[in-house]
Design a protein around this nucleic acid. Sequence first.
RNA 1: GUAGGCGUAGUUCAGUUGGUAGAGCACCUGUUUGUGGCACAGGUUGUCGCGGGUUCGAGCCCCGUCGCCUACCCCA
Length: 404
Amino acid sequence: MIKALRGMKDLSFEDSSRFTYIIDIATDIAKKYGYSYIETPILEETKLFKRSVGESSDIVGKEMYQFIDKGGNDVCMRPEGTAGVVRAFIQDKLDRRQNEKFKFYYYGAMFRYERPQKGRLREFHQFGCESFGEDLVYEDFTIIQMVGDIFKSLGIDYRLEINSLGCSRCMPPYRENLINFLNGCRDELCQDCNRRIETNPIRVLDCKNEKCKSLLRESPKLIDNLCSSCSSDFNRLKELLDIANIEYSVNSNLVRGLDYYNKTAFEFVSSSIGSQSAIAGGGRYDKLVEFVSGKSTPAVGFALGVERIMELVKMPNRERDGYYMGVMNSSDIDKLFPLAHRKRKSSSVTIEYRAKKLKAHLKGADRINARYCVVIGEDEAKNGTVWVKDLEKSEESILKIDEF
RNA sequence: GUAGGCGUAGUUCAGUUGGUAGAGCACCUGUUUGUGGCACAGGUUGUCGCGGGUUCGAGCCCCGUCGCCUACCCCA
């Protein structure tokens, strides 16, 4: 038997309806916040991700689905959505239109070559939004509110964590500061952290190792060393969230795994889905457009992990819907096609082509969860009528075939 | 890449000390010649992941291999 590749899953029945339910709700809300759909390719030049996601990230370092195509190009299946959207934004020269705002939502498959586990697959799906051209912190707030709206609408409980990663003015001095601190306790930090001091010292803050964690309690906090602009934006953000009654906690160790974030970083977390607890994450990335050779453009965005949310979403009860049609004698089957075609203008219709006993038809209608079971038997064929049973109310009637 | 757990019917799983391959659910038929869900009765369903070894005999023991799951790392 040929099976799907490791870390790749088919979605059908219950799963696919959960999937589309989430996308539909997220799409609906994103549109209400003024976002329009953007579709970008799954395959991009590897360079794009190296430059945007960052060489120091694990995503680029070891998790890319990267290969040389038949034309000799170094290409990569996208590991996340933002890079492609930013590339499209620049390619369309939208970065030149400096006074305009552009808001895009997207969803689709992302690929990371890693060991699959609960809530983490090699092919997974994200829904995300990117807002370009707005540097005011109100947009950060609005995006967080939008994600909150989506989860609320899906009936999902979450915890919101926020942090500020500073900007090009306050981050570099802090970084030096932190490196000094880390070098001071180098011998006591774990191996990974020692490596991170060179590659990406900020990520040490995120270490799960208990020993590292306790050492880091004494570390300098970026939150106490923000420049005046970052500091006042962060305070403003907290005020806005308070006023909107959105609960949050400040997590000064929250650093996003991708290099391009600055200022606001946030993560929506759920405690009920195993160890992969982040269900959405995002923040501001004012420098990214420049990194990818565009004209400097402030931007904020987020992405949510569809598969992780599928485990949490409470689906509305599925109600009986549509028609099941069948005949008891095979010679009457032709009568059903025009009937079905007419009904399909407004309802879903399933025809059973094989002649069956009434009981079998009723069971068949039940199985597909149809609201109405429509059958032409001997009497109906003779009289030009159809027998219709409402399976919910358990009421039946006989109608002229033209009037049905 | 590392560690642990698991592979038996469509599915969820049991399978004793190594001795004829099992159950629930699902499915089909009937009770009901034209009335679903409920009940009862009967019935179908197997490369025991794959390959080798030990043995008179392996689902069970041994070796290898593949796959799945969970966790670490990291992330949505």
